[in-house]
């Protein structure tokens, strides 16, 4: 792969949770770690898929990487610029290069603006252009996202879901972005439209050499579009590696459970599988070792080994070969 475009090192983000009234009187606030020591890299022309269940911190990472949400600690370096150290004003020139596709289809679209004006705004944002040049660029963008020019006069509420998504993508391309954080770009779309958008994103990557941080809970789509996949559980990456290996040869028990939940089973096998009580990791009791242990079938099967709940030995990512890394004391065999 080409040189690294994005490097994330030991990223952390704590949110101050709203505590009860009594705790507020005592002046105590709880802090809940949304992202808890995450490191990864992204090369040019690469897609890194970020998967995990809701609340695992994947969206927060996307927002920190773009400098929308400040990090509590850690470093994000994009193309030599340390995002985490820049003030919002200094970030603005970088917006030309890094952009976001929002889960919400309406995110990019001011309800009172026509598609033409939405695109014009993005085109002229970082470049002063002649009217004819703006028109040329507009039609080029429409072409790139397969949108009919008749839609230019439409207001957002007159567009279908797929069209809204295309306008959102065109808008991101309009500023000239080459790195795009795609936050659940297909989850709000119909099945038949999802495939169109997945293809579109892949085509654009080939044609324009884009890099994606592809955040999604849809494992199948992630597996399909990503070169590498990182699996998150409660704020940490538990496994990262080439998409095919993570999906088909998972080494972390959680990854394996995630992907096996896709396998179509008519029986109640799945229910029996996880009949072990699915406890919930408690952030307020620090240092319980591996945070997946309370839900982990391997932990149960191995007779609850002490190391898994040893507060001093929370597993960290280690290389298990073939570009795959896993944070587990007892990684699954191949």
């Amino acid at each position: 792969m080409a040189r690294p475009l994005l490097e994330v090192t030991d990223l952390r983000k704590q949110y101050q949770a709203r505590a009860g009234m009594l705790a507020a009187l005592h002046g105590r606030t709880r802090s809940v770690p949304a992202v808890d020591g995450v490191s990864f890299g992204l090369s040019e022309h690469e897609t890194l898929g970020l998967v995990g269940e809701s609340g695992c911190g994947k969206t927060t990472i996307g927002r920190i990487v773009l400098g929308v949400t400040p990090a509590s600690s850690g470093r994000v370096v994009f193309d030599g610029h340390e995002i985490t150290a820049l003030r919002p004003r200094a970030l603005r020139p970088l917006r030309k290069q890094m952009q976001m596709i929002f889960q919400d289809l309406d995110a990019a679209l001011n309800p009172r603006m026509r598609v033409r004006d939405i695109l014009r705004e993005a085109i002229t944002l970082h470049h002063r252009l002649e009217q004819t040049e703006v028109a040329r660029r507009t039609s080029e963008l429409l072409d790139q996202v397969n949108l009919k020019s008749a839609k230019l006069a439409s207001f957002p509420h007159e567009l279908s879901g797929g069209e809204k998504r295309r306008v959102g993508i065109a808008r991101v391309l309009a500023v000239g972005a080459r790195f795009i954080v795609a936050d659940e770009p297909t989850s709000a779309l119909d099945v038949s439209i999802q495939a169109q958008i997945v293809n579109l994103l892949r085509d654009l990557q080939t044609r324009l050499g884009l890099s994606y941080l592809f955040i999604s809970h849809d494992l199948e789509v992630v597996e399909l579009v990503s070169h590498r996949v990182a699996v998150m559980y409660l704020g940490r990456i538990v496994e990262i590696g080439p998409a095919e290996r993570v999906a088909r040869a998972s080494r972390h028990p959680y990854t394996s459970i995630l992907w096996s939940s896709l396998v179509e089973k008519r029986s109640d096998e799945v229910a029996r599988n996880g009949a072990a009580a699915w406890g919930v990791f408690d952030f307020e009791r620090p240092g319980q070792g591996c945070r997946f242990a309370p839900r982990c079938p391997v932990y149960e099967a191995a007779g609850r080994p002490a190391i898994c709940t040893d507060p001093t030995s929370e597993p960290t990512l280690r290389d298990v070969g073939d570009g795959q890394s896993v944070a587990c004391h007892f990684p699954l065999a191949r």
Binding site: G161, I193, N199, R202, L224, V225
Partner: peptide
């Protein structure tokens, strides 16, 4: 509809790298 599901791809990865998902053209 069945064909455009990623899961029904016999080899999802290969499709992603050098092919495309079959799609239903147009809009709902």
């Amino acid at each position: 509809l069945l064909a455009s599901l990623p899961s029904t791809q016999t080899n999802g990865r290969r499709h992603a790298v050098d092919g495309r998902l079959p799609v239903i053209r147009g809009e709902v």
